[in-house]
Amino acid sequence: MSERVETMEGVATDDLADVIDRLYRRHHRGVFHVALRYGVGDEAWAEDIVQDVFAALMDNLPRLADHEHLDGWLYRVTTNRCLRRLKRDKFLHRGPVRRFLAAQTDREDVLEGQVFARSDLERTRLALAQLPPRERVVVCMCHLDGKSQREVCEALSLSKGYVSKLLARGIARLQEALDD
């Protein structure tokens, strides 16, 4: 922890590029994992998110006075970036937009699917991919990261009732997809 404080205090004197590089090497695995989860295995998608998150960190570095909560900040920003990106992807996948943009929005899911050799994992991956963005994020935050509904509300700026509804609906959808 002392090393982290040292890192953050070094922003004023050290070169920004070096500080960001150091922070990237320290935290990129956690950010990548969260992004890869929401991108349901799409590495290029996750890579874009990682780059976005650390670019945001670079912009906010002087304002991040709370050195001890960089992990929390990164988690929150990563989750929100993923959610925003998922919503954008959903918009791009709508019929008229997809017809308009044609080839650009056709995502090749086959390659990502091949990564999970086991059929049951692949099935779960597809079920997760079918969840609407908010449900996907809320289900993962609550059941994979162990966040309470209150924490989810704060991170995503949603009401508690809505989070509760999203969670129940998401689990039900998942189960339905897996039962089929």
Partner: peptide
């Protein structure tokens, strides 16, 4: 469903950032 989701997450966790990808991001950030 949650158990299977956790299993999928464990499988995802085993996949790290590829060296080329990590290098690309580091260069872009620099």
């Amino acid at each position: 469903a949650i158990e299977r989701l956790r299993e999928l997450d464990r499988a995802t966790r085993r996949r790290g950032v590829s060296a080329a990808s990590g290098d690309r991001v580091r260069r872009a950030l620099r």
